[in-house]
Design a binder for these strands. Structure first.
Lengths: 225, 225
DNA sequence: CCAGGATGATTGAATTCCACTCGGTGACCA
DNA sequence: TGGTCACCGAGTGGAATTCAATCATCCTGG
């Protein structure tokens, strides 16, 4: 579900996690400081070994402060996840803007590149693979697609000529799940990411989104064999 | 990593989890009873909310009994996972035996069908998606491929003519990750499994394993467009 | 410009919950 | 009847979470 953030979730959703909206100035620093601390700890012990005490100590705060901002331990992880997704979106936008896209799969490559880049440089970025098997809202990701989904869909539909509509949404959802799985696998043990899986991910995405499974493509393959 | 069990792990690995080999008769029943209880609880609260007390109570045993057989909480989950994988393998074997395979992708379909079937009928089967981000051995899944990996590879390589070797192993690994992700997605909310994702999974697997991304296939697609 | 109340922010000891231990008790076997 | 085997469940320890007290900052009337 990591890349899934691309397809939905209100931009302000992360703030619903926090108990009290910070009013004073210093609080904002505290809040991001807590997340920075959590990110660091995630890199050190993984996100199921993390303890509230570790976060507090690392942030130079007390336990109570953690609970002032987040209702419980997993809420912190959710918030960190949200922040990672937001930064990922931003990176993709930057990447898209900085690249000259000669084909639609350049856009897809930008997404993969952004993801891989953050995985390598952003502390605690592996939190994107955090999936709470719980009563998490699981929001109607399709209904209120955010600006980013539109942006990516626009690129694919307008700048190049992929068929849009519900079919594209579904395909993107499938593509996201696959990419997520393959990239997570690439970084499962290798901290720099196993290039084979990364490359294969790009290849799979390109072929999948190219409608390779359309009837005529299947016929071509059948004829060739 | 759920389907990943297919590709490795000693058959007897599950038993290494248990603390004491049961000597007396009744113990065997206790052991599977504990797993049955764990499976039921997993379906109710998910496998991160599960507590040892829940398992004990559901099994009509005491906490101590749980720890007599398993060194800790996650060992129970591992054992449940192993049992699910074993049953999955068995189901695949049955399915393969019962079907008349006219093409290699019939074999792949059997695997998907078995997985989906168990997801629907086997209590707590979602445990197959349990991934311990830990010091778990992560066994050399490639080195000592078990009978099942050989069985499936044999089917694909011998009965039909897919290229074997390391490339096949890698492709299977990739295919497993993708299928795992898509099927997990299919069952993420829908307890019966979203048919769209299941069908798409079959399609993706078929095309991916068909070497659709080979140079000549890409050329064919390019020519067609 | 400032006293001092109001409200936000922080603290950490106390509490609760949960994984896990262990000494004691009954059940089977030879 | 002695010797294991199984089982039990109160007890221990550590981590999550609460909360009443304290500190910091803002605001306002004089």
């Amino acid at each position: 579900m990591s890349l899934g953030g691309l397809l939905g979730e209100e931009a302000g959703a992360a703030l619903q996690q926090v108990r009290t909206e910070p009013i004073q100035q210093r609080s904002a620093a505290r809040l991001s400081g807590l997340l920075d601390a959590a990110a660091a700890v995630v890199d050190e012990v993984g996100f199921d070994r993390i303890t509230t005490a570790m976060i507090a100590e690392r942030a130079g705060a007390s336990i109570g402060t953690v609970y002032r901002y987040y209702p419980d331990r997993v809420a912190v992880l959710h918030a960190l996840h949200e922040r990672a997704v937001v930064r990922f979106r931003q990176r993709v936008v930057d990447e898209l803007g900085a690249s000259t896209l000669t084909s639609w799969w350049d856009a897809v490559d930008c997404v993969v590149t952004a993801f891989v880049g953050l995985y390598r440089s952003e502390p605690g970025f592996r939190i994107v693979n955090f999936d709470d098997r719980d009563g998490a809202p699981a929001a109607d990701a399709v209904a209120d697609a955010d600006f980013f989904a539109r942006r990516l869909a626009d690129v694919l539909v307008n700048e190049f000529d992929l068929p849009g509509g519900d079919d594209l949404i579904f395909r993107l959802e499938v593509a996201v799940e696959m990419a997520d799985a393959l990239l997570a696998r690439a970084f499962h043990t290798d901290p720099v990411g196993d290039e084979r899986f990364i490359a294969e991910c790009r290849l799979v995405l390109r072929n999948y989104l190219d409608g390779f499974y359309s009837p005529q493509a299947l016929n071509l393959l059948a004829d060739a064999s």
